[in-house]
């Protein structure tokens, strides 16, 4: 009995572990923040904003895939509904302050998310993916045929306007810090959700849904709430993107976009907070580099190949691999 372990010691070790995890996360977040604040000194702000918008999109998506275990193949619908709503409002009502347009876009995407969730929740697993894909195609047709979206042409020349009527967003640097602030708010929001008791239930559903049900949780309600939050944040990303690039087009609504956000999340690392951000930066950068070079026409095939390789030998993604490496070597 000499080598039996005192339960109090285990508890203390766990607390210490938690504390050091917490500190590590804080340091990581601060480093990330410093990098993002300084980034426009060395890189083109519009390019950075594109990365941040897609990063927010992927972070939103990961709340579902990574932390709830739901694969939505229709997230383009939310990106696009945010984008079109904001674009339409800012173009039609000149003088509308930008943040109101963005909030409206986010709300529309949130409501659409509720609609999707109520239908798709009725089936599970791969059926869930197929249903969300079919629903997003329905939304795509709606956007194609509606007049307010500009059809095949999309919306162009959307005014960036002013934030709170004070800060001129036509200045790229102002715009960048605005986008950065929104991105950080979204990122911290998701981090907070994941760490909350609500987030713990989501993780429980991901790991073992029947057990979560037998513990008395109303699993469907949790799934629906997670879906709606994810859709709203995706819409926010779409609204931001519209303001940055001053356009909204059918590209945002296409199933291809739903595939892209899956790739970003998977490649960066599902179920990690930072993964989708890294994945988005990687994919956006890769697409840019490829479009500049001789391989410009091969973007789709290359993305497909990355998909296949990631699934075959890289399932925990870039950040997941780094975390494993750190755990092994640093402890």
């Amino acid at each position: 009995m000499s080598n039996s372990v005192n339960p109090a010691d285990i508890h203390k070790t766990m607390l210490d572990q938690q504390k050091s995890d917490h500190r590590r996360r804080l340091i990581l977040n601060l480093v990330l923040l410093a990098l993002l604040v300084a980034a426009p000194m060395v890189m083109y702000p519009v390019f950075l904003m594109k990365i941040l918008c897609f990063a927010l999109f992927a972070v939103a998506f990961n709340l579902l895939l990574g932390f709830t275990g739901l694969l939505s193949f229709g997230h383009a619908a939310f990106l696009a509904s945010g984008a079109y709503t904001t674009g339409y409002l800012l173009t039609t009502f000149s003088g509308l302050s930008t943040e109101l347009g963005i909030i409206a876009g986010t709300l529309v995407a949130t409501l659409l998310g509720l609609g999707f969730a109520l239908v798709a929740i009725r089936r599970q697993g791969i059926y869930f993916a197929m249903i969300t894909l079919a629903l997003s195609q329905l939304v795509f047709f709606f956007f194609v045929q509606s007049s307010f979206t500009g059809g095949e042409d999309g919306l162009h020349g959307i005014p960036r306007g002013q934030f709170l009527g004070l800060i001129d967003l036509n200045d790229n640097l102002n715009m960048y810090y605005f986008v950065l602030a929104v991105f950080l708010a979204g990122y911290l929001f998701v981090q907070r959700i994941v760490g909350s008791p609500f987030g713990q239930v989501l993780k429980a559903i991901k790991q073992n849904e029947p057990r979560a049900i037998s513990l008395g949780y109303n699993v469907n309600r949790y799934k629906i709430i997670a879906f709606v939050i994810s859709a709203g944040l995706a819409g926010l990303a779409g609204s931001m993107k519209t303001v940055v690039f001053q356009l909204a087009s059918l590209n945002d609504a296409h199933w291809h976009m739903s595939g892209e956000v899956i790739l970003m999340t998977l490649l960066g690392g599902t179920g990690t907070l930072l993964g989708p951000v890294v994945g988005a930066a990687f994919v956006v950068n890769l697409e840019y580099q490829l479009s500049q070079g001789p391989l410009g026409d091969w973007v789709d095939a290359i993305l497909g190949a990355i998909f296949v390789l990631t699934v075959l030998m890289f399932q925990s993604g870039i950040v997941g691999q780094v975390q494993k490496f750190m755990k092994k070597n640093i402890g």
């Binding site: 899956i262 497909g304 699934v311």
Partner: peptide, 18 residues
């Protein structure tokens, strides 16, 4: 099964892209 779905999606992108 999510992985097989994503794998075949990647294959579809490759075939279509090529």
């Amino acid at each position: 099964h999510i992985y097989s779905l994503l794998l075949t999606f990647g294959v579809a992108l490759i075939i279509q892209g090529v």
